[in-house]
Amino acid sequence: DEFHFHWNGRDIRVRGDSEELRRLIEAIKRGELSEEEIERAIEILER
């Protein structure tokens, strides 16, 4: 699976399928994380 979302003017695409990944992306979409937490998560996910 590939998750695709927009954040902070960026087009983010992440491959993978796990419950943890889904929860993280939902939290990002709901605005539950700080900008710094989101940046760090995206860096890890894009590897």
Rank of each mutant, 00 (worst) to 15 (best):
R23P: 10
F3Q: 02
D17L: 07
H6I: 04
E37G: 14
R30V: 08
E46N: 08
R22A: 07
S34G: 10
R10W: 00
E43K: 10
R13P: 07
R40D: 06
V14D: 01
V14F: 07
E35S: 14
E26A: 12
L33R: 04
A41R: 13
E19Q: 11
H6P: 00
R47W: 02
E39C: 07
K29R: 11
I42E: 01
H4R: 02
D11C: 07
S34N: 11
S18Q: 08
A41M: 09
G31W: 04
I38T: 14
E19P: 15
R15W: 06
E36S: 14
R23Q: 10
H4F: 06
E36W: 12
I12T: 00
G9S: 01
E19H: 12
E36N: 13
S34E: 08
R13K: 15
H6D: 05
E26Y: 02
I12A: 00
E26V: 10
H4Y: 05
G31E: 06
G16C: 03
E46I: 13
R47H: 13
E36H: 15
I38A: 05
L21V: 11
A41Y: 10
E36I: 14
E37N: 06
E39T: 14
I38E: 03
F3G: 02
D1P: 14
E19K: 08
I44H: 13
K29P: 02
L45H: 06
E36A: 15
L45D: 02
W7S: 03
F5N: 00
H6L: 02
I12K: 00
G31R: 08
E20F: 07
I28T: 03
E32K: 08
D1A: 05
R30I: 08
A41G: 07
W7F: 10
R15H: 13
E36K: 15
R10K: 13
A27I: 10
R23A: 14
R15V: 12
A27M: 14
R13I: 15
R40T: 08
I25E: 03
N8S: 00
E26F: 02
I42F: 05
R30Q: 13
E32H: 10
R47M: 12
R30M: 12
L24D: 00
R22T: 06
N8W: 00
L45R: 01
S34I: 08
I12M: 03
I38Q: 04
E46W: 02
E35N: 15
S34H: 09
G9T: 01
I42Y: 04
R15E: 09
R13G: 04
W7V: 09
E20D: 14
V14T: 04
D11T: 15
F5R: 00
G31F: 08
I25R: 02
E2H: 15
R22G: 09
I12F: 08
E20A: 08
E46C: 05
N8K: 14
R15M: 13
L33F: 12
E36M: 13
L24P: 00
G31T: 03
L21H: 14
E35T: 15
I42L: 08
E26G: 11
G31Q: 08
I44Y: 12
E32R: 07
E19L: 11
I28C: 01
L45F: 13
A41Q: 13
G9M: 00
I12R: 01
L24Q: 02
V14W: 09
D1Y: 03
R47I: 13
H4D: 14
E35I: 12
H4L: 04
I28D: 01
K29G: 13
A27R: 14
D1I: 05
L24R: 00
L21S: 12
E46R: 04
K29W: 08
L21R: 06
E19A: 11
E2C: 04
G9C: 12
D11P: 11
D17R: 05
I44R: 13
L24V: 06
E43T: 09
I38R: 03
D11S: 15
E19G: 08
R15Q: 11
I44D: 11
H6R: 02
F5M: 01
L33W: 12
S34R: 08
R10F: 01
D1S: 04
I38V: 14
R10S: 04
D17T: 10
F5Y: 04
H6N: 05
R13F: 14
E36Q: 14
L24S: 01
R13M: 13
S34Y: 06
I25K: 02
I25L: 09
A41H: 06
N8D: 04
F5A: 00
L24A: 03
S18R: 07
E39P: 06
I44K: 14
R10L: 07
D11E: 15
D11F: 05
L21K: 15
V14A: 05
I44M: 14
E32V: 09
I25G: 03
W7R: 02
E46P: 06
I28P: 00
V14L: 10
L21M: 13
R13A: 08
A27W: 06
F3M: 03
R22D: 05
E43N: 12
F5T: 00
L33K: 07
E39S: 13
F3C: 04
I25Q: 05
I28Y: 05
